Simulated scan of single mutants.
Amino acid sequence: MIKVKRESIEKEVVEPYFEQWNELSSHIHKAHDLRNGEAKSLMDKGILLFENCIVNCSETTSQSINESEEYEVLPINGMERLQFIKTRPGQYACFRQLDELFKELKKRLARLRISA
């Protein structure tokens, strides 16, 4: 298991990820409503943002997420859910799933900060 990097889960460090996701998610939601074909490319950005947050909050030298590893910071079934999202990023269900992963990640990081 790849452990959490304590100094990287401080609220000031991780909050920009969630602020960016809030902005991006509103654009993704709008793209789904308009059915303009932009949702997939926006979701690709969201997936990358989520993965960057996971990697930066973990004790790893890798620059990208390793799907065969377990990460302490990932929510329950996070890797399986992320793989599902990556197979069909243009689907609305995947957008909802990524949104839930961001919410659960925020809560998990808060719990990890408290237990530090």
Rank of each mutant, 00 (worst) to 15 (best):
I2C: 07
I2R: 11
K3M: 06
R6A: 13
E7C: 08
S8Q: 15
S8Y: 05
I9K: 01
I9R: 02
K11W: 06
K11C: 05
V13W: 04
V13Q: 10
P16Y: 00
Q20T: 14
W21A: 01
W21F: 04
N22F: 03
N22Y: 10
E23T: 08
E23W: 12
E23M: 09
S25I: 01
S26M: 13
A31L: 12
H32Y: 03
H32K: 03
N36I: 07
G37W: 11
A39T: 05
A39K: 02
K40H: 06
S41N: 14
S41Q: 13
M43L: 13
D44F: 15
D44A: 13
K45P: 11
G46Q: 07
G46I: 04
I47N: 03
L48H: 11
L49E: 04
F50S: 05
F50P: 01
N52R: 07
N52S: 09
N56D: 14
N56A: 05
T60F: 06
T60H: 07
T61R: 08
S62A: 10
Q63C: 12
N66Y: 06
N66I: 01
N66L: 12
E69Y: 10
E70R: 14
E70F: 15
V73I: 15
P75T: 04
I76C: 09
E80W: 04
E80Q: 13
R81P: 00
Q83E: 11
F84L: 07
F84K: 10
T87M: 15
R88L: 03
R88Y: 03
P89Q: 02
P89E: 01
G90Q: 04
Q91Y: 15
Q91A: 12
F95L: 09
R96T: 03
Q97K: 13
L98Y: 01
L98G: 00
D99A: 13
E100H: 07
E100P: 02
L101G: 00
F102C: 12
F102K: 09
F102E: 05
K103D: 12
K103E: 13
E104M: 12
E104R: 10
K106P: 08
K107S: 06
R108P: 00
R108I: 02
A110V: 13
A110Q: 13
L112V: 04
I114E: 09
S115F: 08
S115D: 06
